[in-house]
């Protein structure tokens, strides 16, 4: 039996199993191309600006954290980290990235780097303004407005309720004045409503 198995024509079950394996298993690359010598691309101009290799140290988490708080000034509305890893035609964000690295090398703390940026480029260098002075209005006004309006609403409702309570007990069910014939008619009308 066993030596015949190799020459046996594949049965329906084998076929299905093979098909199923094709569907379920993700395609797996046997070996990696390009290992060893570094290949070059045919048309480097189609790749945009050539980049310098990045050093793992310049992508350290604390550098990234600082850059996420700094705004790029190319008009992209993004932060420095996101802009330099997204908009590859932007020349500002890589330069700002170098500045951050340089400041860090001078031994400045994260906060000091941010302060140095504000001193150099103005407050717009931060992704969000510092919550002090006039900026506090920016942070607090919506919350204050909603709280005030909510309080006013609560007060208004409770006052109306007090007025209503003073006017008399409205909670008592109103007496229904109706003849039996009318009530029967109402019941008929209700039965006609298909809910």
């Amino acid at each position: 039996m066993t030596d015949q198995a190799g020459s046996r024509t594949p049965g329906r079950r084998d076929f299905l199993r093979a098909g199923l394996a094709l569907v379920i298993l993700p395609p797996v690359q046997d070996s990696l191309s390009g290992r060893g010598d570094l290949g070059t691309v045919r048309d480097p101009s189609a790749l945009g600006r050539p980049l310098a290799p990045t050093d793992p140290a310049e992508n350290a988490a604390e550098i990234q954290a600082i850059e996420l708080k700094l705004a790029c000034n190319c008009g992209c509305t993004l932060d420095v980290f996101t802009c330099r890893t997204t908009d590859f035609s932007c020349t500002y964000s890589p330069r700002l990235h170098r500045e951050v690295l340089a400041l860090r090398e001078q031994g400045l703390s994260a906060q000091q780097v941010l302060d140095a940026f504000v001193a150099k480029y103005g407050e717009k260098a931060l992704m969000a303004p510092k919550p002090r002075g006039f900026n506090l209005a920016g942070y607090l006004l919506p919350g204050v407005a909603i709280t005030t309006a909510g309080a006013a609403l609560t007060w208004l409702i409770s006052r109306r309720r007090a007025v209503a309570a003073a006017a008399g007990p409205s909670a008592a069910a109103p007496e229904v004045q109706a003849s039996d014939e009318e009530l029967a008619r109402l019941q008929r009308a209700l039965d006609e409503v298909d809910d």
């Binding site: 909670a171 008592a172 069910a173 109103p174 007496e175 229904v176 004045q177 109706a178 009318e182 009530l183 008619r185 109402l186 009308a189 809910d195």
Partner: peptide, 29 residues
């Protein structure tokens, strides 16, 4: 329906039922 789903207390149910029965009767009249 709201009483059946437990939304209305019995007191509220009585009040609202009375009120809208009145409205409905008025409309019928």
């Amino acid at each position: 329906f709201d009483r059946e789903t437990g939304k209305l207390s019995d007191e509220d149910y009585a009040y609202l039922k009375g009120k809208y029965t009145g409205v409905a009767l008025e409309a019928l009249r």
